[in-house]
């Protein structure tokens, strides 16, 4: 065996330990709810808590709505910029970068200040607060969504594909539905997945807007209990993994999708 490959295995091992050890420790700890033996008691408590199911499904709903609205906003926008306004690309990059610089606390205070008084007193009702929540999450997810959509469009030479479809008689709905979206599927799925992960675990905005999200629930559990939060972390981690595997499975089964092979660049 060559020296280089030994070292690369050492680095891989270090990396695996770094990421896996806390997870294993958490898992081990979550099994210790009953004194002196391993058991799934903490998991039983968590899963039987109605709060868990309620906050989790609410977060999933909000995540799905965030993803849908983000896609509806970002895909046509990025498409149009690619096609007709390439000069606006730097501006788009800048805007998509803003959520990284702007702390969530600032964002949520800004939202509350503007939308808690007339003419747009959105914080007065639960449903309108949910709108604010989704809007805020769309902002948080923007960098990831924009990146994946932008990269996806760059990879498939969206402009020429559009023109090819046009010359064959296709109108805009056909072009977007049958050419653009299918060829962006992989990129859209990765953006979707990241958005989902962000929304499920988000704490700051959800707690300031006082919505029953999964993040604040997890935090309150940490304050009051010992083993259950560990169990909950493992559960949400498992859910995340299942979703990721599902994404992989879908993208690999889509014929021709994983492959980006049009003409020369």
């Amino acid at each position: 065996m060559k020296r280089g490959s030994i070292w690369s295995w050492v680095w891989v091992a270090i990396g695996v330990i770094y990421f896996a050890l806390p997870l294993i420790a958490t898992f081990e700890f979550s099994l210790k709810a009953e004194r002196g033996r391993y058991s799934l008691a903490a998991y039983r408590t968590v899963l039987s808590d109605p709060q868990f199911l309620r906050t989790f499904t609410f977060s999933v709903e909000i995540a799905i709505l965030t993803i849908v609205f983000s896609l509806l906003l970002i895909v046509p926008t990025v498409y149009w910029v690619h096609l007709k306004l390439p000069n606006l690309r730097p501006l788009m990059e800048f805007v998509a970068f803003l959520p990284f610089v702007l702390p969530a606390v600032v964002l949520v205070f800004g939202l509350i200040r503007i939308y808690s008084r007339p003419p747009l007193a959105l914080t007065n009702y639960a449903w309108s607060t949910n709108l604010l929540l989704i809007a805020a999450y769309m902002g948080l997810a923007l960098p990831y969504m924009y990146r994946s959509v932008d990269t996806g469009m760059r990879a498939v030479d969206i402009r020429t594909l559009t023109e090819a479809a046009q010359s064959l008689g296709a109108g805009w709905p056909t072009i977007i539905g049958r050419v653009i979206f299918p060829n962006l599927r992989t990129a859209l799925l990765s953006g979707t997945f990241l958005t989902f992960a962000i929304v499920i675990g988000e704490y700051t905005i959800a707690s300031f807007l006082a919505r029953p999200m999964f993040g604040p629930y997890l935090a309150s559990l940490v304050r009051n209990k010992a083993y259950e939060p560990a169990a909950l972390s493992i559960i949400s981690f498992a859910i995340t993994w299942i979703i990721m595997a599902a994404v992989q499975w879908v993208t690999q089964r889509t014929p021709g999708a994983g492959q980006v092979a049009t003409g020369p660049r």
């Binding site: 594909l161 090819a164 010359s167 060829n183 003409g263």
Partner: peptide, 29 residues
């Protein structure tokens, strides 16, 4: 507009739809 001209166009970069088979590409129009 280009989609109402009945013109066939061939591009330098081929511009085949990557998500469709050869037959579906040809049959698209």
């Amino acid at each position: 507009p280009p989609n109402q001209r009945n013109i066939g166009m061939v591009f330098q970069s081929y511009a085949l739809f990557p998500n469709m088979t050869v037959a579906d590409n040809i049959g698209f129009g």
